[in-house]
Computed example of a mutant assay.
Amino acid sequence: MSSKHVTISLTLERLWQFSLQYYSVREVKEACLHLQNHFKGNVNLLLLLKWLDEQQVCFKEQDWRKVEECLGRSETLLHDYRELRRKLKFHLPDTVYRESLQFELQLEKQQQSDLVDCINSIELTVNHAEPLTLRYCRQLGGEQLYTAFSDPIDNIANQ
């Protein structure tokens, strides 16, 4: 099969809106958090990969490292902030805690911006192989979680 170059229109707002809709499904949210907390997975990367799966596109094997490296700038900050927020949860007034969650969402959005920039800088092709979300779950050792991500978003939204 030939690997024909594909052009997609990925913007931060498009990925962000997709992520909000997809993550709002209880089963998806639980699987994402399980992947993050038990397999050290990156939820924003998984959401990006799901978006790419929905477009039926993928990137070359050698670009996996580049995509994962683009998380480096924000991952440590986001991880450390998330840990601090969790530790302070029961010591902060509700309003301050909600503000801390909002700030964390801004960090998440910045990370998605980094991912969008990265994806828009590499060559994409039609995906004739397995879904990227399955590959990522398998890579982390959480292949059993893939079932939560396997349905197309249209099927999930209509449940």
Rank of each mutant, 00 (worst) to 15 (best):
N37L: 10
D80S: 13
K109V: 00
Q110I: 11
Q112K: 04
S74W: 06
E99R: 12
R138M: 01
A129G: 04
C70R: 06
R86T: 11
V57Q: 02
T11W: 07
C32K: 00
R14Q: 12
V96H: 11
L132T: 01
Y22P: 03
Y23P: 01
F90I: 08
A157E: 12
G142T: 02
D154F: 08
D94E: 14
C70E: 12
L71G: 05
R135A: 09
E130V: 13
N127C: 07
K4E: 12
E13L: 13
K29F: 06
N42I: 05
Q56V: 10
F149R: 00
L52V: 07
L115I: 03
S3F: 12
Y23A: 05
Y146A: 00
E104D: 08
L78M: 11
A129F: 11
C58A: 10
K87S: 05
K50S: 09
S9I: 10
Y22C: 05
S150G: 00
I153L: 14
D114G: 00
L101Q: 13
D154A: 12
K40C: 06
R82T: 15
Y22L: 04
D151A: 12
L71W: 09
E69Y: 10
R98K: 15
R98S: 14
Q55D: 05
K87F: 13
D94P: 08
T11S: 15
T95A: 13
Q112C: 03
E143Q: 12
V57L: 04
S3M: 14
L88D: 04
G141I: 04
D80I: 00
V43R: 00
C58I: 07
V6H: 06
D94G: 08
F59I: 04
T11R: 08
C137Y: 02
Y97T: 01
P93K: 09
L45T: 05
P131L: 03
Y146N: 11
V126I: 14
N42E: 07
N120H: 06
R86C: 07
W16H: 12
V28L: 07
L47N: 03
L10C: 07
E27A: 09
L105M: 15
T7W: 09
A148V: 03
I156Q: 09
H5A: 11
V116Q: 06
Q62R: 08
S2W: 10
Y136W: 01
V25K: 09
R85T: 08
T7E: 14
Q21W: 04
L105W: 10
Q112P: 03
